[in-house]
Design a protein around this nucleic acid. Structure first.
Length: 469
DNA sequence: GCCATCGGCGCG
DNA sequence: AAAGCGCGCCGATGGC
Protein backbone atom coordinates (compact mmCIF):
# COMPACT_ATOMS: atom_id res chain seq x y z
CA UNK A 1 0.00 0.00 0.00
CA UNK A 2 1.32 3.44 -0.89
CA UNK A 3 1.50 5.16 2.50
CA UNK A 4 0.10 8.50 1.40
CA UNK A 5 -2.52 10.17 -0.79
CA UNK A 6 -1.47 12.31 -3.79
CA UNK A 7 -2.01 15.47 -1.77
CA UNK A 8 0.09 14.11 1.08
CA UNK A 9 2.83 13.26 -1.40
CA UNK A 10 2.61 16.81 -2.75
CA UNK A 11 3.06 18.19 0.76
CA UNK A 12 6.32 16.29 1.24
CA UNK A 13 7.47 17.18 -2.25
CA UNK A 14 6.84 20.91 -1.84
CA UNK A 15 8.05 20.72 1.73
CA UNK A 16 11.40 19.22 0.72
CA UNK A 17 11.96 21.99 -1.81
CA UNK A 18 10.95 24.73 0.61
CA UNK A 19 13.12 23.33 3.38
CA UNK A 20 16.05 23.06 0.99
CA UNK A 21 15.72 26.78 0.44
CA UNK A 22 15.54 27.34 4.19
CA UNK A 23 18.72 25.31 4.62
CA UNK A 24 20.42 27.36 1.93
CA UNK A 25 19.52 30.61 3.66
CA UNK A 26 21.04 29.60 6.98
CA UNK A 27 21.38 31.58 10.19
CA UNK A 28 23.96 34.21 10.97
CA UNK A 29 26.30 33.32 13.81
CA UNK A 30 28.17 35.73 16.06
CA UNK A 31 31.53 34.04 15.53
CA UNK A 32 33.66 36.26 17.81
CA UNK A 33 31.17 35.73 20.62
CA UNK A 34 31.07 32.00 19.94
CA UNK A 35 34.85 31.68 20.04
CA UNK A 36 35.15 33.73 23.22
CA UNK A 37 32.34 31.79 24.87
CA UNK A 38 33.91 28.43 24.12
CA UNK A 39 37.09 29.66 25.83
CA UNK A 40 35.21 31.04 28.81
CA UNK A 41 33.03 27.99 29.24
CA UNK A 42 36.06 25.72 29.14
CA UNK A 43 37.66 27.81 31.88
CA UNK A 44 34.44 27.82 33.89
CA UNK A 45 34.19 24.04 33.76
CA UNK A 46 37.81 23.74 34.84
CA UNK A 47 37.19 26.05 37.81
CA UNK A 48 34.06 24.18 38.86
CA UNK A 49 35.85 20.85 38.57
CA UNK A 50 38.64 22.12 40.82
CA UNK A 51 36.14 23.08 43.50
CA UNK A 52 34.68 19.61 43.30
CA UNK A 53 38.00 18.13 44.43
CA UNK A 54 37.27 18.96 48.06
CA UNK A 55 34.11 16.87 48.25
CA UNK A 56 34.28 13.48 49.92
CA UNK A 57 32.70 11.82 46.91
CA UNK A 58 35.49 12.95 44.62
CA UNK A 59 38.14 11.86 47.10
CA UNK A 60 36.63 8.38 47.23
CA UNK A 61 36.29 8.40 43.47
CA UNK A 62 40.00 9.13 42.92
CA UNK A 63 40.99 6.60 45.58
CA UNK A 64 39.04 3.87 43.82
CA UNK A 65 39.98 4.65 40.21
CA UNK A 66 43.36 6.42 40.35
CA UNK A 67 44.62 7.12 36.86
CA UNK A 68 41.44 5.69 35.38
CA UNK A 69 39.39 8.40 37.11
CA UNK A 70 36.93 9.96 34.65
CA UNK A 71 34.40 12.56 35.72
CA UNK A 72 32.32 11.80 32.63
CA UNK A 73 31.81 8.15 33.50
CA UNK A 74 28.38 7.49 34.91
CA UNK A 75 29.38 3.93 35.65
CA UNK A 76 32.26 5.03 37.89
CA UNK A 77 30.01 7.53 39.64
CA UNK A 78 27.43 4.82 40.36
CA UNK A 79 30.06 2.53 41.86
CA UNK A 80 31.42 5.27 44.11
CA UNK A 81 28.08 6.57 45.34
CA UNK A 82 26.17 3.33 45.78
CA UNK A 83 28.76 0.56 46.28
CA UNK A 84 31.48 2.43 48.17
CA UNK A 85 29.73 5.27 49.96
CA UNK A 86 26.52 3.36 50.61
CA UNK A 87 23.92 5.82 49.36
CA UNK A 88 20.60 4.23 48.48
CA UNK A 89 20.62 3.23 44.80
CA UNK A 90 17.77 5.12 43.12
CA UNK A 91 17.15 2.43 40.54
CA UNK A 92 18.69 0.49 37.70
CA UNK A 93 18.95 1.14 34.00
CA UNK A 94 17.68 -1.08 31.21
CA UNK A 95 20.90 -3.10 31.32
CA UNK A 96 21.11 -3.32 35.10
CA UNK A 97 23.54 -0.52 35.95
CA UNK A 98 22.91 2.17 38.54
CA UNK A 99 20.93 5.11 37.25
CA UNK A 100 22.84 8.39 37.49
CA UNK A 101 20.53 10.83 35.75
CA UNK A 102 19.49 14.11 37.32
CA UNK A 103 16.29 12.86 38.94
CA UNK A 104 18.05 9.84 40.49
CA UNK A 105 20.96 11.86 41.82
CA UNK A 106 18.56 14.39 43.35
CA UNK A 107 17.78 11.73 45.96
CA UNK A 108 21.42 11.48 47.02
CA UNK A 109 22.00 13.72 50.02
CA UNK A 110 25.47 15.13 49.34
CA UNK A 111 26.82 18.59 48.50
CA UNK A 112 28.70 16.91 45.66
CA UNK A 113 25.60 16.24 43.60
CA UNK A 114 24.44 19.78 42.87
CA UNK A 115 27.86 20.93 41.75
CA UNK A 116 28.42 17.80 39.67
CA UNK A 117 25.13 18.29 37.85
CA UNK A 118 25.94 21.93 37.17
CA UNK A 119 29.23 20.94 35.57
CA UNK A 120 27.44 18.37 33.43
CA UNK A 121 24.99 21.01 32.22
CA UNK A 122 27.78 23.31 31.09
CA UNK A 123 29.69 20.40 29.58
CA UNK A 124 26.64 19.44 27.55
CA UNK A 125 26.16 22.99 26.30
CA UNK A 126 29.85 23.28 25.46
CA UNK A 127 30.27 20.05 23.53
CA UNK A 128 26.91 19.91 21.80
CA UNK A 129 25.73 23.45 21.33
CA UNK A 130 28.87 25.60 21.26
CA UNK A 131 31.58 23.38 19.78
CA UNK A 132 29.02 21.65 17.60
CA UNK A 133 27.85 24.99 16.29
CA UNK A 134 31.39 26.13 15.54
CA UNK A 135 32.10 22.95 13.59
CA UNK A 136 29.08 23.53 11.38
CA UNK A 137 29.47 27.26 10.82
CA UNK A 138 31.02 28.55 7.62
CA UNK A 139 31.63 32.18 6.74
CA UNK A 140 29.53 33.23 9.68
CA UNK A 141 26.44 31.27 8.60
CA UNK A 142 25.18 27.90 9.83
CA UNK A 143 22.93 25.74 7.67
CA UNK A 144 21.01 23.21 9.77
CA UNK A 145 19.50 20.34 7.80
CA UNK A 146 15.73 19.69 7.99
CA UNK A 147 14.63 16.15 7.16
CA UNK A 148 11.17 15.05 6.11
CA UNK A 149 12.06 11.38 5.76
CA UNK A 150 12.66 8.54 8.18
CA UNK A 151 10.49 10.09 10.88
CA UNK A 152 7.90 7.51 11.80
CA UNK A 153 5.17 9.97 12.75
CA UNK A 154 5.65 12.03 9.57
CA UNK A 155 7.12 14.88 11.55
CA UNK A 156 10.49 16.44 10.65
CA UNK A 157 13.91 16.21 12.21
CA UNK A 158 16.98 18.41 12.07
CA UNK A 159 20.71 17.83 12.23
CA UNK A 160 24.18 19.24 11.59
CA UNK A 161 23.48 20.99 13.88
CA UNK A 162 20.10 20.07 15.25
CA UNK A 163 18.20 23.36 15.20
CA UNK A 164 15.27 21.83 17.05
CA UNK A 165 16.84 21.28 20.45
CA UNK A 166 18.67 24.50 21.26
CA UNK A 167 18.57 25.09 25.05
CA UNK A 168 15.65 27.26 26.10
CA UNK A 169 14.37 26.38 29.56
CA UNK A 170 17.44 26.77 31.75
CA UNK A 171 17.85 30.57 31.59
CA UNK A 172 21.64 30.81 31.94
CA UNK A 173 22.43 28.01 29.53
CA UNK A 174 19.77 29.22 27.08
CA UNK A 175 21.26 32.69 27.01
CA UNK A 176 24.82 31.39 26.68
CA UNK A 177 23.90 29.45 23.55
CA UNK A 178 21.23 31.67 22.02
CA UNK A 179 23.49 34.71 22.01
CA UNK A 180 25.30 32.90 19.16
CA UNK A 181 22.34 33.19 16.80
CA UNK A 182 21.98 36.73 15.46
CA UNK A 183 20.05 38.61 12.82
CA UNK A 184 21.79 39.80 9.69
CA UNK A 185 22.64 43.51 9.33
CA UNK A 186 19.62 45.79 9.56
CA UNK A 187 17.40 42.82 10.30
CA UNK A 188 15.61 41.08 13.15
CA UNK A 189 15.09 37.41 13.99
CA UNK A 190 11.39 36.58 14.20
CA UNK A 191 10.05 33.37 15.69
CA UNK A 192 6.35 32.71 15.20
CA UNK A 193 4.81 29.72 16.88
CA UNK A 194 1.38 28.16 17.02
CA UNK A 195 -0.01 28.18 20.55
CA UNK A 196 -0.95 24.70 21.81
CA UNK A 197 -0.97 23.26 18.32
CA UNK A 198 -0.96 19.58 19.27
CA UNK A 199 -3.88 20.03 21.64
CA UNK A 200 -5.78 21.87 18.88
CA UNK A 201 -5.10 19.16 16.33
CA UNK A 202 -5.98 16.38 18.77
CA UNK A 203 -9.29 18.16 19.31
CA UNK A 204 -9.92 18.07 15.55
CA UNK A 205 -9.72 14.29 15.73
CA UNK A 206 -11.71 13.58 18.90
CA UNK A 207 -13.96 16.68 19.00
CA UNK A 208 -14.43 16.46 22.75
CA UNK A 209 -16.94 19.19 23.68
CA UNK A 210 -15.16 20.16 26.90
CA UNK A 211 -11.88 20.53 25.04
CA UNK A 212 -13.53 22.45 22.22
CA UNK A 213 -15.05 24.84 24.76
CA UNK A 214 -11.60 25.46 26.22
CA UNK A 215 -10.15 26.12 22.79
CA UNK A 216 -12.94 28.48 21.77
CA UNK A 217 -12.75 30.56 24.93
CA UNK A 218 -9.45 32.48 25.03
CA UNK A 219 -9.97 33.48 28.66
CA UNK A 220 -10.08 29.84 29.79
CA UNK A 221 -6.96 27.81 30.48
CA UNK A 222 -7.01 24.04 30.80
CA UNK A 223 -3.54 23.80 32.31
CA UNK A 224 -4.21 26.46 34.91
CA UNK A 225 -7.45 24.78 35.98
CA UNK A 226 -5.70 21.41 36.20
CA UNK A 227 -2.86 22.94 38.21
CA UNK A 228 -5.32 24.29 40.79
CA UNK A 229 -6.94 20.86 41.20
CA UNK A 230 -3.61 19.09 41.34
CA UNK A 231 -2.26 21.25 44.15
CA UNK A 232 -5.59 21.82 45.93
CA UNK A 233 -5.65 25.57 45.41
CA UNK A 234 -8.84 27.63 45.55
CA UNK A 235 -9.34 30.53 43.13
CA UNK A 236 -8.66 32.93 45.97
CA UNK A 237 -5.42 31.13 46.90
CA UNK A 238 -4.35 31.00 43.27
CA UNK A 239 -4.74 34.77 42.94
CA UNK A 240 -2.43 35.28 45.91
CA UNK A 241 0.41 33.38 44.26
CA UNK A 242 2.94 35.61 42.44
CA UNK A 243 2.65 35.57 38.67
CA UNK A 244 6.06 33.96 38.13
CA UNK A 245 5.25 31.16 40.58
CA UNK A 246 1.85 30.66 38.91
CA UNK A 247 3.65 30.14 35.63
CA UNK A 248 5.99 27.53 37.14
CA UNK A 249 3.15 25.64 38.78
CA UNK A 250 1.15 25.70 35.55
CA UNK A 251 4.21 24.51 33.61
CA UNK A 252 4.70 21.38 35.74
CA UNK A 253 0.98 20.60 35.76
CA UNK A 254 1.02 20.85 31.98
CA UNK A 255 4.13 18.81 31.29
CA UNK A 256 4.16 16.28 34.12
CA UNK A 257 0.45 15.65 34.22
CA UNK A 258 -1.78 16.87 31.39
CA UNK A 259 0.56 16.12 28.50
CA UNK A 260 1.88 13.03 30.23
CA UNK A 261 -1.68 11.68 30.49
CA UNK A 262 -2.45 12.64 26.90
CA UNK A 263 0.65 10.80 25.74
CA UNK A 264 -0.42 7.71 27.66
CA UNK A 265 1.25 7.93 31.06
CA UNK A 266 -0.67 7.15 34.25
CA UNK A 267 -1.00 8.35 37.81
CA UNK A 268 1.84 6.29 39.33
CA UNK A 269 4.49 7.85 37.12
CA UNK A 270 2.82 11.25 37.16
CA UNK A 271 2.73 11.31 40.96
CA UNK A 272 6.44 10.45 41.12
CA UNK A 273 7.42 13.20 38.70
CA UNK A 274 5.08 15.84 40.09
CA UNK A 275 6.34 15.17 43.62
CA UNK A 276 9.96 15.62 42.49
CA UNK A 277 9.05 18.77 40.53
CA UNK A 278 7.83 20.48 43.70
CA UNK A 279 11.26 20.42 45.34
CA UNK A 280 13.38 20.81 42.21
CA UNK A 281 11.50 23.90 41.09
CA UNK A 282 10.97 25.20 44.62
CA UNK A 283 7.22 25.50 44.12
CA UNK A 284 5.41 27.56 46.74
CA UNK A 285 1.83 27.96 47.91
CA UNK A 286 -0.26 31.09 48.49
CA UNK A 287 1.64 32.16 51.61
CA UNK A 288 5.09 31.60 50.15
CA UNK A 289 5.30 28.27 51.96
CA UNK A 290 6.68 25.16 50.23
CA UNK A 291 3.87 23.56 48.23
CA UNK A 292 4.27 20.32 50.16
CA UNK A 293 3.39 22.23 53.31
CA UNK A 294 0.26 23.52 51.63
CA UNK A 295 -0.68 19.99 50.61
CA UNK A 296 -0.21 18.80 54.19
CA UNK A 297 -2.96 21.19 55.28
CA UNK A 298 -5.23 19.29 52.94
CA UNK A 299 -4.45 15.83 54.26
CA UNK A 300 -1.69 14.95 51.79
CA UNK A 301 1.28 14.01 53.94
CA UNK A 302 3.65 12.03 51.73
CA UNK A 303 4.25 10.89 48.20
CA UNK A 304 3.13 7.29 48.57
CA UNK A 305 4.90 4.11 47.46
CA UNK A 306 4.07 4.55 43.80
CA UNK A 307 4.19 0.79 43.46
CA UNK A 308 2.12 -0.27 40.45
CA UNK A 309 1.23 -3.54 42.19
CA UNK A 310 -0.26 -1.83 45.25
CA UNK A 311 -3.27 0.38 45.65
CA UNK A 312 -2.23 3.87 46.75
CA UNK A 313 -2.71 4.44 50.48
CA UNK A 314 -4.92 7.15 51.91
CA UNK A 315 -3.38 10.51 52.65
CA UNK A 316 -0.75 10.17 49.94
CA UNK A 317 -0.08 12.34 46.93
CA UNK A 318 -0.26 9.22 44.80
CA UNK A 319 -3.87 8.64 45.84
CA UNK A 320 -4.65 12.27 45.13
CA UNK A 321 -3.12 12.13 41.64
CA UNK A 322 -5.12 8.99 40.94
CA UNK A 323 -8.25 10.92 41.82
CA UNK A 324 -7.19 13.78 39.57
CA UNK A 325 -6.53 11.34 36.76
CA UNK A 326 -10.09 10.05 36.99
CA UNK A 327 -11.33 13.62 37.07
CA UNK A 328 -9.28 14.57 34.02
CA UNK A 329 -10.62 11.71 31.90
CA UNK A 330 -14.16 12.25 33.18
CA UNK A 331 -14.01 15.82 32.01
CA UNK A 332 -12.62 14.73 28.66
CA UNK A 333 -14.76 11.62 28.37
CA UNK A 334 -15.28 11.98 24.62
CA UNK A 335 -11.53 12.30 24.11
CA UNK A 336 -11.05 9.15 26.23
CA UNK A 337 -13.61 7.28 24.15
CA UNK A 338 -11.98 8.43 20.90
CA UNK A 339 -8.68 6.93 22.08
CA UNK A 340 -10.31 3.56 22.64
CA UNK A 341 -12.17 3.69 19.33
CA UNK A 342 -9.17 4.88 17.32
CA UNK A 343 -6.98 2.12 18.70
CA UNK A 344 -9.63 -0.54 18.21
CA UNK A 345 -10.08 0.54 14.60
CA UNK A 346 -6.32 0.23 14.07
CA UNK A 347 -6.27 -3.22 15.62
CA UNK A 348 -8.96 -4.39 13.24
CA UNK A 349 -7.45 -2.86 10.08
CA UNK A 350 -3.71 -2.82 10.83
CA UNK A 351 -3.37 0.77 9.67
CA UNK A 352 -4.78 4.25 10.15
CA UNK A 353 -4.89 7.43 8.10
CA UNK A 354 -4.05 10.91 9.33
CA UNK A 355 -6.14 14.01 8.62
CA UNK A 356 -3.38 15.14 6.28
CA UNK A 357 -3.58 12.00 4.14
CA UNK A 358 -0.76 9.80 5.43
CA UNK A 359 -1.21 6.12 6.14
CA UNK A 360 0.61 4.56 9.09
CA UNK A 361 0.85 0.79 8.99
CA UNK A 362 2.74 -2.03 10.68
CA UNK A 363 2.94 -3.02 14.32
CA UNK A 364 2.51 -0.13 16.73
CA UNK A 365 1.90 -0.02 20.47
CA UNK A 366 -1.27 1.66 21.65
CA UNK A 367 0.23 4.99 22.64
CA UNK A 368 1.92 5.38 19.28
CA UNK A 369 -1.28 4.71 17.40
CA UNK A 370 -2.91 7.49 19.40
CA UNK A 371 -0.02 9.96 19.21
CA UNK A 372 1.32 9.70 15.67
CA UNK A 373 -1.70 11.10 13.83
CA UNK A 374 -1.83 14.10 16.13
CA UNK A 375 1.90 14.77 16.14
CA UNK A 376 2.16 14.33 12.38
CA UNK A 377 -0.85 16.42 11.42
CA UNK A 378 0.17 19.23 13.76
CA UNK A 379 3.54 19.44 12.05
CA UNK A 380 1.91 19.35 8.62
CA UNK A 381 0.02 22.53 9.49
CA UNK A 382 3.35 24.19 10.19
CA UNK A 383 4.90 22.74 7.06
CA UNK A 384 2.06 23.88 4.83
CA UNK A 385 2.37 27.39 6.23
CA UNK A 386 6.12 27.38 5.68
CA UNK A 387 5.68 26.26 2.07
CA UNK A 388 3.21 29.05 1.40
CA UNK A 389 5.57 31.66 2.81
CA UNK A 390 8.73 30.38 1.13
CA UNK A 391 7.29 29.39 -2.21
CA UNK A 392 4.50 31.89 -2.73
CA UNK A 393 3.99 34.89 -0.49
CA UNK A 394 7.52 36.14 0.11
CA UNK A 395 8.38 35.79 -3.57
CA UNK A 396 5.11 37.27 -4.82
CA UNK A 397 5.65 40.32 -2.64
CA UNK A 398 9.33 40.54 -3.66
CA UNK A 399 10.31 40.52 0.02
CA UNK A 400 13.85 40.15 1.34
CA UNK A 401 12.72 38.20 4.39
CA UNK A 402 14.48 34.83 4.70
CA UNK A 403 12.93 31.83 6.43
CA UNK A 404 15.88 30.26 8.26
CA UNK A 405 14.45 27.46 10.39
CA UNK A 406 11.51 25.50 11.72
CA UNK A 407 10.94 23.91 15.12
CA UNK A 408 7.90 21.60 14.81
CA UNK A 409 5.33 24.29 15.58
CA UNK A 410 7.29 27.45 14.93
CA UNK A 411 8.97 29.28 12.05
CA UNK A 412 12.14 31.34 12.42
CA UNK A 413 12.84 34.13 9.95
CA UNK A 414 15.48 36.78 9.36
CA UNK A 415 13.49 39.89 8.49
CA UNK A 416 14.63 43.35 7.29
CA UNK A 417 13.31 45.70 9.95
CA UNK A 418 11.31 47.65 7.38
CA UNK A 419 9.50 44.44 6.37
CA UNK A 420 8.57 43.40 9.90
CA UNK A 421 4.97 44.62 9.87
CA UNK A 422 4.34 43.10 6.46
CA UNK A 423 5.88 39.80 7.44
CA UNK A 424 3.82 39.50 10.62
CA UNK A 425 0.62 40.27 8.73
CA UNK A 426 1.50 37.79 6.02
CA UNK A 427 2.35 35.05 8.52
CA UNK A 428 -0.89 35.61 10.37
CA UNK A 429 -2.84 35.43 7.14
CA UNK A 430 -1.19 32.17 6.12
CA UNK A 431 -0.90 30.38 9.45
CA UNK A 432 -4.31 31.24 10.85
CA UNK A 433 -6.70 32.12 8.05
CA UNK A 434 -5.55 30.34 4.92
CA UNK A 435 -4.57 27.18 6.73
CA UNK A 436 -8.15 26.73 7.91
CA UNK A 437 -9.39 27.21 4.37
CA UNK A 438 -6.86 24.68 3.09
CA UNK A 439 -7.89 22.07 5.67
CA UNK A 440 -11.53 22.47 6.70
CA UNK A 441 -11.09 19.66 9.23
CA UNK A 442 -9.30 22.23 11.39
CA UNK A 443 -12.42 23.14 13.34
CA UNK A 444 -10.78 25.04 16.20
CA UNK A 445 -9.42 28.58 16.20
CA UNK A 446 -5.65 28.73 15.77
CA UNK A 447 -3.45 31.24 17.51
CA UNK A 448 0.07 32.39 16.80
CA UNK A 449 2.58 34.26 18.92
CA UNK A 450 5.58 36.20 17.69
CA UNK A 451 8.91 37.03 19.29
CA UNK A 452 11.36 39.48 17.76
CA UNK A 453 15.05 40.17 18.40
CA UNK A 454 16.64 43.63 18.39
CA UNK A 455 17.97 44.84 15.03
CA UNK A 456 21.13 42.87 14.36
CA UNK A 457 20.61 41.34 17.80
CA UNK A 458 20.43 37.81 19.09
CA UNK A 459 17.89 35.06 19.60
CA UNK A 460 18.53 35.33 23.33
CA UNK A 461 17.09 38.86 23.41
CA UNK A 462 13.90 38.24 21.51
CA UNK A 463 10.74 39.74 22.98
CA UNK A 464 7.09 39.05 22.48
CA UNK A 465 5.35 41.33 20.02
CA UNK A 466 1.67 41.87 19.26
CA UNK A 467 0.35 40.74 15.92
CA UNK A 468 -2.24 43.00 14.35
CA UNK A 469 -4.53 40.76 12.36
C1' DG B 1 40.93 2.93 14.66
C1' DC B 2 36.06 1.90 13.56
C1' DC B 3 31.48 0.93 14.92
C1' DA B 4 27.31 -0.07 17.54
C1' DT B 5 25.07 0.43 21.79
C1' DC B 6 23.86 2.63 26.05
C1' DG B 7 22.71 6.24 29.25
C1' DG B 8 21.81 10.74 29.49
C1' DC B 9 19.71 15.12 27.99
C1' DG B 10 18.51 19.05 24.90
C1' DC B 11 14.04 20.46 22.33
C1' DG B 12 8.82 20.00 20.57
C1' DA C 1 -4.90 -4.18 29.77
C1' DA C 2 -1.12 -1.28 29.93
C1' DA C 3 1.32 2.27 31.82
C1' DG C 4 5.11 8.93 28.07
C1' DC C 5 5.18 10.33 21.92
C1' DG C 6 8.98 12.06 18.51
C1' DC C 7 13.77 13.34 17.35
C1' DG C 8 19.72 14.05 17.31
C1' DC C 9 24.15 14.47 19.76
C1' DC C 10 27.44 13.66 23.30
C1' DG C 11 30.88 10.69 25.93
C1' DA C 12 31.77 6.16 27.68
C1' DT C 13 32.25 1.48 26.76
C1' DG C 14 33.48 -2.75 24.66
C1' DG C 15 33.84 -5.84 20.57
C1' DC C 16 36.21 -6.33 16.37
Amino acid sequence: MIPYSPEAYQLLHDGSIALAEVEGNGIRIDVPYLNATIEETNAKILRMTKRLEQTDVLKEWRKRYGRKFNLGSGEQLGTVLFDIMGFDPPGLTETGKYKTDEASLAKVNSPFVKRYLKIKKYQKALSTNLEGLRRETEDGIVHPVFNLHFVVSYRSSSDSPNFQNIPKHEPKIARLVRLCFIARKGRVLVEIDYGGLEVCIAACYHQDPTMLAYLHDPSSDMHRDTAKDLYVLTDEEWERIPHKMQKMIRFTAKNSFVFAEFYGSYYVDCARNLWDDIDRDGLQGPNGEPLKEHLRKHGIFERGDCDPAEKPSKGTFEAHVQKQERRLWNRFAVYAQWRRDWYKDYQEKGWFKTKTGFICQGHMARNKVINYPVQGSAFHCLLWSLIQLVKKDLKRNKMKTLIVGQIHDSIVADVPIEELEDYLALAHNVMVKRLKRRWPWVIVPLEIEAEVSPVGGSWADKEEIKINA
